[in-house]
């Protein structure tokens, strides 16, 4: 039995410790917001926060997450009101939407370290997240809008 702390909640799961965190989240704990896109850390659809770092859950062995704090898209904010979530809706970013939870989780890690990212900063930080529909321009704008909200005092959990 492995105990995981995900979105401030403890889960006991009976899985092979070598299993990627992604599949434990999706198949066992039933948190399916974290997406499977490539399985080899190339597309970013599976990004979660492990002690605040934007790790790719598809290559993260679940054993590595034991005793650590995992945050998924479902736990990014309590009321789905993270500035990034608000900005994403405000600018109507998604097309198919499949990659967006990974995009938002990557962006959240960026905003924590860089309160006022330039377009160049955003490109450098986000180039690991693929959007097949091509919503990159809107994501850039949404990250900057969220940064502005954040600076104006909307609290980030």
């Amino acid at each position: 039995m492995i105990t995981l702390n995900i979105n401030k909640k403890n889960y006991n799961v009976d899985v092979d410790p070598e299993t990627p965190l992604l599949w434990v989240l999706r198949d066992v704990i039933n948190l399916v917001g974290t997406k499977y896109g490539c399985g080899v850390a190339q597309c970013g659809a599976c990004v979660v926060h492990l002690n605040g770092e934007a790790v790719r859950s598809c290559v993260t062995k679940v054993s590595r997450a034991v005793g650590q704090k995992v945050v998924t898209i479902e736990g990014l904010s309590e009321k789905n009101d993270h500035p990034l979530q608000k900005a994403w809706i405000e600018l109507d970013v998604p097309q198919c939407g499949y990659c967006q939870s990974g995009q938002i989780m990557s962006a959240a890690a960026l905003l924590r370290e860089n309160k006022n990212p330039t377009e160049k900063d955003i490109d450098a930080a986000m180039a690991g997240n693929i959007c097949r529909c091509g919503t990159y321009l809107r994501i850039r704008k949404a990250i900057q809008l969220a940064a502005e909200m954040q600076r104006k005092g909307i609290k980030i959990p």
């Binding site: 934007a54 790790v55 290559v59 590595r64 930080a125 690991g128």
Partner: peptide, 17 residues
């Protein structure tokens, strides 16, 4: 750098495949 740290993908031990 921030979101793109090497260790986000190249972890201490990685899944095989």
């Amino acid at each position: 750098i921030n979101v793109m740290k090497c260790s986000n993908c190249h972890q201490p031990t990685n899944v095989a495949g």
